[in-house]
Amino acid sequence: MKKINFDKVFSFILVSLLGLFILRVLYSVAGEEAARFTADHYINFGVEETSAINIVTAILFDYRAFDTLGEATVIFTAASVVALLLPRHEASMLKTEFTPVVQQSIAFVLPFLWIISIFLIAYGHLSPGGGFSGGVIISAISILIIFTYGYRYMTRRFNVKKLSLIEDIGALAFLTIGLAGIIAGGTFLANSQVGIYPGTPGELLSGGLMPLSNFAVAAKVGTGLSVIFLSLARED
């Protein structure tokens, strides 16, 4: 005789009602042919206003760059909180080593990862990618180094203070790029109103200050996630 767990039954009923409600809301949102005012403006005039082909990057770093600033702040706060919160004790999986076959192969793979990340950052206004994805691949490089060659090897090259310094420099660079909009007479973080070399759309050197913002955000995100992972895996 199995005892019925009334807690689970009650949550199941509650959750299924919630699912029906969400389904109703979603159909009411998607049913009408919504007027796409902002989307039409971005699609029709986005390329000539910002001279970036990738409209998503144009929105992230030009039209709504203030959101991006908030997002960078979230990562900064997360890195600080994780580094503050965690105690020091070692993870037992970092004591073991891979075989030399794996270590040598990873030495082959690491330059490949650098090339991919820098390609994604530099071509952020021409193809999918941008500062966030390239930065996260930089932090994946640090994760791969920690898991392959050990925590000590990583901290001998880059300790947490140096990485935090690079993160601060990235944040300051992004804010300075934002101030350029005010100097040029526009609003904060208005890249296209500055008018520094808009270029022809489709070339590598175009988009005004957008590639610089990409590099700043990439430095910030990559070192921020690296600091988070170093704090999670910290040993004494």
Binding site: N54, V56, T57, L120, P128, G129, G130, F132, S133, V136, I137, S139, A140, I143, F147, L225, F229
Partner: peptide, 16 residues
């Protein structure tokens, strides 16, 4: 763009 970010973060970093 969304697919690239999802592939980078949720399939790669979060598992570690």
């Amino acid at each position: 763009d969304l697919a690239l970010a999802e592939a980078v973060i949720a399939a790669g970093i979060t598992t570690s």
